[in-house]
Amino acid sequence: MLREELLQKYKKDVDNLRNSAKDLGLSNKELDIIFKKCFSDIKKSTNGSKQTKTKAQQLFRTVINIFLLFTLITIFIYILLNVHQPTSSIVLRNVQGLTYPTLKIVRFLSVPFLKMFPSLTDLYDETCLLENPYFYVADMECWPCEGVHAVLDLSEVDQSSFSSGSGTPFIVKIDLQPVTFKTLQHTYNENQEVFNVEARRIKSTNTSIHNLKDLFHSDMAHLANTTTHTSWRINKMVPARLIRKLFPRPSFISDRCGQSVERFIIIDGAKAEPYILPNTECSYIFVIQGSGERTIVLRPSMECSQNCRTVSVILKPSYVLWYNWWYWRPISLPTENSTGPSVSYINSYC
C-alpha cells in the first residue's frame, strides 16, 4: 500500500472517530484531549521498550567483557607460570601449603550434596569420568598386528614358556569349572548385600531388567533363546574378590602384572545381537568364556586399519581370549546354531 493511500485511510479513520464522538455528545476539545492522551501513552510504551532493550544490550556487553578479561588473565597467568621459572617457584612454594585445607573445605561443602544424592559416591572409584571418543594416536607402530591372519590357539603350548606382551591375539584353554547363569545366581543370593551396594551397575537390552535383583530373579530358561544382552560392571575390591573365585587369574599372566579392579560379566541370550566389547582401564585384556559360546570378531583399531586385517574366533567354554586394546576393537556376535545362554568375563592388566 502506498504512503498516500495510508494517509488517506488514516484521515478517514480519524473522521469516523470524530463523527462517532459527536454522536456520543463529545465536543472537539474533549476529543482532542483523548487523542493527546493516547499518543502520549504510545510514546511512553515505545520509549520504555527501547530502554529495556538498551539495558539488556549493556548487560550482555558487560558479561562478554568480563569473560574476555578473565580469559586473558588466565592465559597470561598460565604463560607466566610455565615460562618464568622464578614466578612459578614462588607460586608453587606458597600454594602447596594451601592444597590440603582447600580440599578439606571442598569436601566439607560437598557433604550436603552427597546426602541429597548418595549415588555420587560411586564417582570416587572411577578412574575416568568422561571418555574421549575422538582419541587417536598419530604415527602409531602397527607391526604387532600386521602379520596376524588368524587367532592362534596356544592350548597345547606350555603357558609358562610364552609371553603375553605382544599385540598378537590368541586363545588358551584353561582348567575352569563352568560358570553358568545359575552359578552367578547362587553367588548373588549368598552375597546380596555386597553386590546391591558395591556392584549394582548393570545395563540390559531387556526393558524389564533394571538392577541385579531383576536379573537374577528372572527366568533364565525364558531368556536363553532371546536377544537379551546384559552387562554387569564391577569396579570395587570387595565384589571383585567374590567374582575372582569364579574366574581365577589365568596362569599365563605374570604375578608381577597389575590386574585391574574393573571387570565385566556379560550375560547374553543365544540370539543376542552384536555389540562392541567394553573398553577397560588397562590395554592388555583377557576374556574368559564361562559357559555358552560367542563369536568374537577382532577388528583393527582405527590407527592400524590400513595395515592389519580383521580376524575372528569362536570362544568356547573354558577358553580365554587375549588381545591388546591398542591394536584390536572386538565385536561379540551370536554363534550359529547356539541354543544356550552365554556368560563371559572381561578383565585387564597393565
Rank of each mutant, 00 (worst) to 15 (best):
Y188G: 00
I253C: 08
N47M: 15
I171C: 05
I266A: 03
P86M: 12
C308Y: 02
F39I: 05
F216N: 05
N189R: 15
F67L: 14
S312L: 09
L6P: 00
M302V: 13
E293W: 03
S348H: 04
Y10K: 07
F247T: 00
K9I: 11
Y323C: 06
L114Y: 05
V157G: 07
A21Y: 03
E131K: 10
S344A: 04
L103I: 04
I64T: 15
T227L: 12
K9D: 05
D15G: 05
T71L: 12
D41S: 07
E193S: 07
R249G: 06
F170Q: 04
F67R: 15
E193V: 05
I253L: 08
N191M: 08
S110I: 00
F247G: 02
L80N: 09
H186G: 04
D214Y: 07
S27W: 02
V95L: 15
I174C: 11
V261R: 06
P330C: 13
N225K: 15
I314S: 13
K55P: 01
A21Q: 00
Q192F: 00
L321K: 04
I202Y: 01
C350M: 10
N225G: 10
P133F: 09
F108Q: 04
L80E: 11
L114I: 06
S155N: 07
E193W: 09
N19E: 03
Y10M: 06
N347A: 10
D23E: 07
Q96W: 09
P248T: 06
K316G: 07
S20G: 02
Q289C: 03
V151W: 08
S155T: 10
S301H: 06
I64A: 14
V297S: 10
T54G: 10
N337L: 14
K213W: 02
V157Y: 12
H186A: 12
I34G: 01
I234D: 00
Y319T: 08
Q289L: 00
E293V: 10
I79M: 11
S338D: 06
T87K: 13
Q58P: 02
G167T: 10
K55C: 12
N189E: 14
F67Q: 14
L277A: 11
S283D: 10
I64Q: 14
R201T: 07
P334I: 12
S332F: 03
N189Q: 13
L184V: 02
L246Q: 04
Y10E: 10
S208R: 14
E198I: 01
N94F: 14
Q185S: 13
Q96D: 09
P317G: 02
T295V: 13
N19H: 03
H84R: 13
N324W: 11
L212C: 05
K53S: 15
M237E: 12
I90K: 13
G48R: 13
Y319N: 08
V320D: 01
G340K: 12
H222A: 15
C257L: 09
I253G: 08
A270S: 14
